[in-house]
């Protein structure tokens, strides 16, 4: 039981990271129907920006987090304008390969500048463990990750449901043309979506750096794909789905590592994805929409 609770805490922390990245995937997919493969690399850039700010500029955790979110938001807008806009009306596959090319560019471009080696993130958060009632240890970092994730999700929900930008985003994702006719600027809305999604990924990057202490230029690949899996699990395009999918995936992976074999944890993630897709093709929270004949 202790071990289970302990793993649950670890799982929720990992799931928070997945959820934050998955949100960006799901928002972008919802609005332009593109699997933004470069999203995992924006998360990596976020981690590096956080690393640079804390190591070279000796910033504290919170300013580093916010600044790195800002940098990622700008990067997200640039990526969309430079790379995705030209292929917006191309085939799905062309758009997808473009996204992959952006991903490779960010990965290996970063590698060119910072070299391939793993960097160690400085300790910006106190490494204090709190012992709970029955031997479960919660590190203060777990609390930070979980708290910040929840805070960001609340803010995101607020933006989407209570602001004009959020309304525009929802409108464009439902029907781009109709939204345009209603006076919504589609380009601007897409930019906002990329900015918000990317800033969440940036936050996830800094959190991961703080939590696991090590970062490298290819760190975005696997979590990127897995976060996409999380988004699909929850039902792609559905924001609460991405959160649930992220936590679900994080907890499952941690449990598989703890009770089964950590070697198989990635395989289990994909197996769950496939099973969910086959049983409920539109994800856990998705509605089944049959193609109109």
């Amino acid at each position: 039981m202790e071990q289970f609770l302990q793993q649950l805490v670890n799982g929720i922390s990992l799931g928070s990271i997945y959820a934050l990245i998955a949100l960006g995937y799901t928002m972008v997919y919802g609005i332009i129907n593109l699997i933004n493969f470069a999203h995992g690399d924006i998360y990596m850039i976020g981690a590096y920006v956080g690393f640079a700010l804390t190591t070279f500029f000796h910033m504290g955790f919170v300013p580093a987090l916010l600044l790195s979110m800002l940098v990622c938001a700008i990067l997200g807008i640039i990526v969309e304008k430079v790379a995705y806009k030209p292929v917006r009306n191309s085939t799905r596959i062309a758009a997808l390969i473009t996204a992959i090319s952006v991903s490779l560019f960010l990965e290996y471009g970063t590698m060119y500048f910072v070299k391939a080696e793993t960097r160690t993130f400085p300790n910006v958060l106190p490494d204090v463990s709190i012992k709970l009632f029955n031997g479960v240890i919660i590190n203060i970092r777990d609390l930070y990750i979980i708290a910040i994730t929840i805070l960001l999700m609340v803010v995101l929900q607020y933006i989407i449901h209570r602001t004009k930008v959020g309304k525009a985003m929802r409108a464009v994702s439902l029907d781009r043309e109709a939204a345009q006719l209603m006076g919504v600027s589609v380009d601007k809305t897409i930019s906002y979506t990329f900015a918000i999604g990317s800033s969440l990924a940036g936050a996830a990057g800094v959190l991961v750096g703080v939590y696991y202490n090590s970062i490298d230029p290819l760190m975005g690949m696997m979590p990127g794909i897995k976060a996409f899996v999380a988004a699909v699990l929850g039902g792609i395009g559905i924001i609460p789905g991405a959160m649930i999918g992220g936590f679900f995936l994080g907890i499952t992976e941690t449990m598989v590592s703890a009770y089964g074999s950590s070697l198989y944890k990635d395989a289990v993630a994909f197996a769950i994805l496939i099973i969910v897709l086959l049983i409920k093709p539109n994800g856990l929270l998705g509605k089944n929409v049959k193609e109109k004949v």
Partner: peptide, 8 residues
């Protein structure tokens, strides 16, 4: 990656 992007 730039070659890929240009092709697309």
């Amino acid at each position: 990656s730039i070659v890929l992007f240009s092709i697309m």
